[in-house]
Simulated assay, not measured.
Amino acid sequence: MRIQADRDVCIGAGNCVLAAEDVFDQDDDAVVEVLQDHPGPDQESEVRNAVAQCPSGALSLVDD
């Protein structure tokens, strides 16, 4: 599983950080930053929740 983030679509809501703070962060403009492109299996539930909670649809998952 790989995370894709469209930083042009991100609205800076921060839901991703709240759902998976070890995987996502925000830059100084509150735009999403992916800290781990390929999160481990132990983080899959958190990451899927973060993607689902993204109000702008900026996050997606790609199966490797």
Rank of each mutant, 00 (worst) to 15 (best):
Q36D: 15
V62Q: 14
D42C: 07
E44G: 06
I11Q: 02
A58T: 05
H38F: 11
L35Y: 07
D37M: 12
E44N: 11
V31Y: 05
A13W: 07
V34C: 06
R48M: 08
A20N: 08
D37W: 09
A20W: 04
L59P: 02
V34K: 04
A20Q: 06
D6I: 03
P41L: 12
P55C: 07
D64M: 09
V23Y: 01
R48A: 05
Q43M: 13
D6S: 09
C54L: 07
A13Q: 08
L18A: 15
G40H: 10
D37N: 10
E33C: 08
A50H: 04
Q26L: 15
N49M: 10
G57H: 07
N49P: 00
D63V: 12
L59M: 05
D22R: 15
E46T: 08
P39H: 06
D42L: 11
G40C: 09
C54W: 02
D64S: 12
R48Y: 05
C16D: 01
Q26F: 05
D37Y: 06
A50M: 06
Q36I: 14
P41M: 09
D25V: 00
D27E: 09
E21K: 10
N49C: 08
D29T: 04
R48Q: 15
L61Q: 07
R48I: 03
Q4A: 09
V32N: 01
D63Q: 12
D22T: 11
E21L: 03
Q36Y: 03
Q53E: 15
